[in-house]
């Protein structure tokens, strides 16, 4: 049942240790971008057998078909509860499965929950063998969420700029101001009311709508 420990695929890998290329890893993640980032990272680290499962219907059947050694799943995935069933039901499970935690390793599990990912190991795999995988997972998940929040911030900033520009236009027209005066007026009002310029700009736009 255990795969040969020294056979390795064509891609030789310096860091991961040759035996780890034989590990089959399944990634269950509904975010295709994050899954791709994770898969790339795992391949770079020398894990050549990586499969992504994007469709979670009949998850268990898909997992049995793949028969992976390690399962990585994002914590926002409701299907995580389905995996828990594999701890239990001996009849349908070919190999025992366990979550990658033990009593002594709360730091590791805390880091993975914080990052939003959980790992399950199948069979009698030594836990230290998947430590690299989990660490990699955590850093990729964290990188992804940083990327996502930067993207959100950039989007918000762009949106704010747009609203401020439009509010300036409204003020210029209504009060006969030039662009700089209109901006100064927005900024002063924001300071007086202890609000963000974008919020004042939004109020101007709302008022302008009402006066239409």
């Amino acid at each position: 049942m255990r795969k040969g420990s020294d056979s390795s695929g064509p891609g030789a890998q310096p860091q991961g240790g040759s035996r780890d290329s034989s590990l089959k890893i399944a990634i269950v993640d509904e975010s295709p971008i994050r899954a791709a980032i994770l898969e790339d990272g795992l391949r770079e680290a020398g894990f050549t057998q990586v499969e992504r499962i994007a469709e979670t219907r009949n998850l268990l059947t898909r997992i049995y078909a793949l028969d992976p050694d390690v399962i990585l799943i994002d914590l926002e995935n409701p299907s995580r509860d389905e995996l828990e069933q594999m701890f239990q039901m001996s009849r349908i499970v070919k190999r025992p499965i366990a979550m990658f935690v033990d009593q002594s390793d709360t730091a590791s599990i805390q880091a993975s929950v914080d990052a939003g990912v959980s790992a399950y190991i199948v069979g009698n795999l030594q836990k230290d063998r998947i430590k690299t995988i989990l660490d990699l997972c955590i850093s990729r998940f964290n990188a992804f969420s940083r990327l996502q929040s930067e993207l959100e911030e950039a989007k918000d900033a762009l949106q704010e700029r747009k609203i401020i520009d439009r509010a300036k236009g409204v003020l210029m027209k209504a009060k006969g101001l030039n662009e700089e005066q209109a901006y100064t007026l927005l900024r002063k009002t924001a300071m007086n009311e202890n609000k963000k310029i974008a919020e004042i700009a939004q109020s101007v736009m709302t008022a302008a709508e009402l006066f239409k």
Binding site: L75, E76, N77, P78, S79, R80, D81, L83, E84, I109, V113, S118
Partner: peptide
């Protein structure tokens, strides 16, 4: 989204 998350957290 899942009881596993609730329990772990």
């Amino acid at each position: 989204v899942s009881w596993s998350n609730v329990r772990d957290k």
